[in-house]
Design a protein around this nucleic acid. Structure first.
Length: 673
RNA sequence: GGCGGCGUAGCUCAGUCGGUUAGAGCAUCGGAAUCAUAAUCCGAGUGUCCGGGGUUCGAGUCCCUGCGCCGCUACCA
């Protein structure tokens, strides 16, 4: 069979934190398993990754710590590299986008697109915050709508009349960061002309019928909404500077430049190997299959924008062959969140458990076609019931028996019984399915099928009863052991992409020293000789799981939230606000809205209508009759067609609302001072 | 509300092109066995395949519709 050439990548990870199980489940483990399988079948494959060093969160963190962003990026780059090694994810190269090589090639990419006429320069007027010395993104600006004169219009759109606004046309604009009036400054940005790519993209994408459904759905909904020009530069200090004269402070936008990191990381790899041009053998070779592993949030960038960028380079870069995207991994039934510390850091996991266990569990439970969950109890069950009881015990009972009665030496019998033949044949059939599963990114399935082989071994052992045969027909007992060892030998090959370290250990016990290759599956040895044996896996105690759950809860309670305070105000500012206790007379959902409730309230004798965005925490009926706190002299505003003449006061906690009610009975209309 | 996804056993899920009596693991109950990490093996199941309608000789699967849940998005004055 002809060797294939493959270039596999895992999505670049933001270098603003440590590696967690979401990264592993999303794009590292599945890529690593795929790559290891490709190596088993002797394809030429390299596996490339790295960190995305330019995210805004990184500059913010650097500011907080008073260091340069480069320090942060390099710190987490190293930390991730170490954690990946800790769970045996074997990348051929792990680079970072703030390294010089990457900067250079990103600039080339930009220049090529510009010269080919796919990048448009536009000068526009933007609002600039003098205090913070930066241009303001639309959502950081507020002002009066030039169309309907409503206050509180955002920089991009007026919520009152729904019209789109250019931020510089706002009347009396205010910066939301400093509260000051920004100045108008001219700035220049470069836009990628995506509409110009649309036809070419459609033609190319229409050949990708073999892509996963979730990926195709995503792309076509994007295409059908219509592609728009997108700015590929920003006014920032931390990023890849654009390679033009007099453009200080302009950098490439991360989504443009980050995927180029795959190329710069490959170059870095080639250089380390001492063959600086070797990268071209992959990136510029039409025979190479380029496969990007990533999470679903990254689909549009890798299937629309990135191919567009690649198409118009001077060198004939290959385009992605496949983009197997995973869905998300949740933790204990809740969405993971690094800011809430609701995740499991790989570094912490490795303090308590073997990395192989994480690989096994995440493989068995991978979010391939829909979101899946990491449950600690389920983790324990899978490790104990499957890895230990089924597989570990099969190896252990076979080895101990062989040691005890045969001094560890088991020869192949001259004739195998029908049952033995059938058992081996079944395993061989499963091996074929497993190979296919690996090749189709179906890690869950591969894991399940593998367990089936181990199960069949236990069944075979039980039914052939070697502990009985050893007394009256020693050869029969030896046959059983031979077949079980052969199953273990096959398993040691088949399982090596998922739990490589354990399978290596297994092979060592069996004195199997040949290189692990798929083609050796069918080569049944004439005899087995067991070396020193020990248990393959250890069980996880209830107490260990309890501890993990407690740790998880503790990080929730112990977490200190940094509250960012607003600007100090004068008493006069406060005294302008009129808060009163009002009684809710009627409440009902607003049609077509998800969060809004329409309220009829009485302030003393006066009745008004108000809109409140709290329907995720309150049923309208439950509000009727309540006396609540409201701000009543805010300028009325139409929301979803209803005029709101007061604003309810409520405390927000993680998306849930609690309305404020007085501690004692007071009459409606009472002023709050 | 718009777009997308999901709904199958107590739990986690598989179910190919529409094809017999809807499957696996875990958990539960009963049994066998004693080589083994009390591990293993056999057996027993339980199902309104979310509801309703349609297409079809035949629907978990395709179409329409209703409900529920999740993600993105708009609406939190």
């Amino acid at each position: 069979m002809k060797k294939e050439k493959l270039l596999v990548t895992s999505a670049l990870t933001y270098a603003n934190g440590k590696l967690h199980i979401g990264h592993v489940a999303g794009s590292y483990l599945n890529a690593d398993i795929f790559v290891r399988y490709q190596k088993l079948i002797e394809n030429d494959v390299i596996y490339i990754g790295g960190t995305d060093d330019y995210g805004t969160p990184i500059s913010l963190k650097a500011e907080e710590e008073g260091v340069s962003p480069k320090v942060i990026a390099e710190r987490y780059n190293q930390s991730m590299k170490k954690d990946l090694e800790g769970i045996n994810i074997q990348l051929d190269n792990f680079s970072g986008t703030s390294r010089p090589r990457h900067i250079e090639i990103s600039q080339d990419f930009f220049t090529n697109l510009l010269e080919a006429g796919y990048v448009t320069k536009k000068t526009l007027k933007q609002l600039y915050d003098k205090k913070y010395k930066r241009f303001l993104a639309d959502r950081y600006i507020e002002g009066i709508c030039p169309h309907c004169k409503a206050e509180g219009a955002r920089g991009d759109q007026c919520d009152s009349c729904g019209k789109l606004i250019d931020a510089i046309n706002l009347i009396e604009p205010k910066s939301k960061i400093s509260g000051k009036t920004p100045v108008i400054k001219e700035t220049t940005h470069w836009y990628l002309n995506l509409p110009k790519f649309e036809e070419e993209l459609r033609t190319w994408l229409s050949t990708k019928t073999y892509w996963k459904d979730n990926v195709r759905n995503f792309i076509f909904s994007w295409l059908n909404e219509g592609l728009k020009e997108r700015a590929i530069t920003r006014d920032l200090n931390w990023g890849v500077p654009i390679p033009l004269e007099n453009t200080k402070g302009k950098v490439l936008y991360v989504w443009f430049e980050a995927p180029i990191g795959y190329i710069s990381s490959t170059q870095e790899w080639a250089e380390k190997k001492g063959k600086p041009d070797l990268w071209k053998d992959y990136w510029l070779n039409p025979e190479t299959k380029l496969i990007h592993f990533l999470g679903k949030d990254n689909i549009p960038f890798h299937t629309i924008i990135w191919p567009s960028v690649l198409m118009k380079q001077k060198e004939p870069y290959i385009l992605p062959y496949d983009v197997p995207a995973n869905e998300f991994l949740n933790l204990e039934g809740q969405k993971m969140s690094t800011s809430r510390n609701w995740t499991v850091w790989v570094e912490d996991f490795l303090k308590y458990f073997d990395g192989e266990y994480l690989r096994f569990y995440l493989a068995a439970n991978a979010p391939e076609s829909k979101d899946s969950d990491f449950y600690w109890k389920d983790f324990q069950a899978k490790i104990n019931n499957e890895l230990n009881n089924i597989l570990g015990n099969l190896a252990n009972r076979t080895f101990i028996f062989a040691k005890k009665y045969f001094d560890g030496k088991i020869s192949k019998p001259d004739n195998l019984s029908e049952y033995s033949k059938k058992t081996l044949k079944e395993a061989d059939k499963l091996a074929g399915y497993i190979g296919k599963s690996y090749n189709n990114y179906q890690v869950r399935k591969a894991t399940r099928l593998l367990m089936d082989i181990a199960r069949s071994g236990n069944k075979y052992f039980d039914e052939t009863q070697p502990w009985v045969e050893i007394k009256n027909n020693k050869a029969k007992a030896e046959e059983t052991l031979f077949v079980c060892m052969e199953l273990l030998r096959i398993i040691s090959i088949l399982y090596s992409p998922i739990i490589p370290k354990s399978m290596k250990k297994l092979r060592k016990m069996m004195n199997l020293n040949k290189k692990i290759l798929w083609k050796n599956l069918g080569k049944i040895p004439g005899k087995f000789e067991i070396g020193k044996v020990s248990q393959l896996f250890q069980k996880i105690e209830d107490s260990e799981i309890k501890k993990q759950l407690e740790l998880l809860k503790a990080t929730q309670k112990g977490r200190k939230e940094m509250i960012k305070h607003k600007e100090e105000i004068e008493y006069d500012d406060f005294s302008k606000l009129e808060f009163r206790i009002v009684k809710i007379l009627e409440a009902g959902k607003i049609e077509k809205s998800n969060k809004l409730i329409k309220l009829k309230i009485s302030i003393g004798g006066e009745e008004r209508t108000a809109v409140a965005g709290i329907s995720q925490s309150y049923e309208p009926e439950g509000l009727i009759g309540k006396k609540v706190a409201m701000l009543i002299n805010l300028k009325p505003r139409k929301v979803m067609g209803v005029e709101s003449q007061a604003m309810i006061l409520s405390a927000e906690d993680d998306g849930k609302f609690a309305v404020l009610v007085p501690d004692k009975e007071v009459k409606s209309g009472s002023e709050i001072l």
